[in-house]
Amino acid sequence: MTHSSFLQDELKISEQVDGDRVLLKLEGALSVTTVPSFRQAVQPYLEKQYAVIVLDFDGVTKIVSRGVGAAIDMAVQAKKQGSKLCIEKVGKYARSLYIQGVHLVAEVPELEGFEP
């Protein structure tokens, strides 16, 4: 049971398109509240089949496993259609992403050779 509240989490996503590559910068919380809008915001880029979709996590202030799960679903969809999802600047969330196996479906430079 969740209620809407003036205290609820927010997530903003801005885009930078460069040919067949799109960079999506996330700012705010990747939480249960914001996961639906996260999925909704990224889906059009998946459907346009950019060769590379980059999620920039530098501005992410909070992560929950469901948010990471959404990124995993996006990476699987991208892979199936021959494109690639990259997640950059994961910083302090590296261990959480590693535990959830994000590196198995997405390209995460900070998790290459990562030792938890």
Partner: peptide, 11 residues
């Protein structure tokens, strides 16, 4: 997970 994703819930 690698084949079909997470779809619902988390970890």
């Amino acid at each position: 997970m690698v084949e079909i994703g997470v779809k619902s819930g988390g970890f």
